[in-house]
Every structure is written in structure tokens, then in C-alpha cells.
Amino acid sequence: MAKQEDSLAEMSRAESGRATEITIKAGFVAQSREIWRRFRRSRTAVVGLAIVLVIVFAAIFADIIAPHDPYQTAPRAILLSPSLEHPMGTDAIGRDLFSRVIHGSRVSLQVGVISISIAAIVGVPLGVVAAYYGGLSDSLIMRFLDALLAFPAILLAIFVMAVLGPSIRNAMIAIGVIFIPAFARITRANALSLKEKEFVESARAIGAKDSYIMMRTILPNCVSPIIVQASLGVAYAVLVEASLSFLGLGSQPPEPSWGSILGAGRGLMASAPWVATFPGLAIFVCVLGFNLVGDGLREALDPHLKNT
């Protein structure tokens, strides 16, 4: 008898789970259409998206786009000024700067995306757990993250790099670490209000497990601020990577990274300004692109701005 009841309850739970899944999916499609419509309305956001797409395209097809091998030195063609053959000139040991900047987009995007993924994968669950359980676990997690946040981001990254040793992989980890608090806090703030909502209450009432509630009811509803945070975060991560590489802590030579090309060109500002200028412009445009997309997404995703 009791067993039967049990299995009945389970069935209904599974059913309701499936039902929510379906509604979520249907809702998601409609919602994303709506978001796209609103995103499109903002011209700057579209420009930002175009920039990001161009950079992504450059990164994916760098081998095809780049006219020269970015590693090929030409000691007899050093510091040539921009020309048709070398649209951005050549660097101090004769490498084609245009090819290096194109290939540099790979490093920047890779670092931006992977480090933000690390931050999100660690930070978001921490935020949800902190909000959902509250009390001691909340205090422990959030105080620890506050401590991380107390350090200036670059300083913390340099510290992590000093411990791990300079390399692009370690740069990703370092940048990932410094972004964890941002994701955890934003998730926690949302989750705190969400956990009082009726649909969470109802999930709890039918006896759903904690993990189910967190993953299936709270998390999906936190997604929009996380997405906004991620796209703005990528911009900042690109900047931090460039700073680390500029200081010689990020990508190691001869790998082309905007930061390290800029760092090498810094000494040549007087005699060959193009070496520092073009990677600098690339960083600027890339960061601008991700920022515009981030702003556009924030407006598009914000329910309060729905009817404006």
C-alpha cells in the first residue's frame, strides 16, 4: 500500500517535471525571439555583435586570413612600415604584424571564453548553494569570495601567475579565479529572491530534492544576469590577459598575443610606432565589441525594460 503511494508520487513528480521542462522549452524559444527583437532595436548592440563576429571569424580562420606565417622571422625586413605586402608593417625581427594580430585574436578569445567559463562553472554553483542553504555555508562561501574580491583583479592575477608560473594556460586559470566572486555574487543575489517564489515552493512541496530545485527551478531563472555578466566579463578578461602578456606573464614568446606584441612594441614607439599601435587598436576594438554586446544584452534581458 505504502509502496504504491510512493510510486504514484514518483510518477506524478516525474510528470510534473516533464511538464515544466516542456513549458520551459517552449517559453525559451518565444523568449529568445523576444530578446533578439529587443536586442536588434539597439544599434550600438548590433555594431558590437558585428565586431565580435568579425573577431570570432578571424580567430577561427586565422590560418586562411593571415597572409604570412606569424612565426616566420625575416631579419632583413625588420620594422617595415605598413604597406600592401605588410598591412600593419613588420616587427623587430621581421615578422608580419598583420598575421600576428590576426593570430593574436585566437589567444585573446580563447583566454576570454575559457577563463570566463571557469569563473562561471565555479562561481555560479557557489552562488546558488550559498543562497539556497543560507546560514553558515552562505557566510563561509561569501566571506571567502569577499576576501578574493578585496584584491585588485590584476594584482590577484599576477599573484596567481607567480605561483603557477607564466603560461597562457595559467593565465586562463588566474583570470578565471579573479572572476569567480563576480559570478557567485550575481547568482546568489538572484537566487535569494527566487527561492521565495511560488514555483520553488511548489517544487519543494512535491518533495523534490535540493539539487533538483537548485538546478531545475532556480538556476534557469538566473541565466540572464549571468549571460550579461559573462559577455562583459569576456571583455575584461581580454584586457587582463593583454596586461599579463604585456608584463611577460601571460602568453610566452613567440606565441602572438596582443598584449605581448604591444609589450615588445613599447620600446619601439619612437622608431616604429605601428608595432604597438595595431595590437593596441585590436585590444580596444575587441573590448569595445564585447562591452557593447554586454550592454545590449542587459537591456534586452531586463524584464523591467520590456515595454519601453
Binding site: 616566420q72 622571422t73 631579419p75 623587430a92 614568446p253 613567440p254 615588445a264
Partner: peptide, 15 residues
């Protein structure tokens, strides 16, 4: 990497 030594190293590396 002081002075020209960064470039020097990269050139040697390429060779």
C-alpha cells in the same frame, strides 16, 4: 628580456 634581449631570444628561437 632586457633591452634587445627579448628580440634576440625570439630570433634565436626561430633559427
Amino acid at each position: 628580456t632586457q633591452g634587445v634581449w627579448g628580440q634576440y631570444g625570439e630570433l634565436m628561437h626561430a633559427m
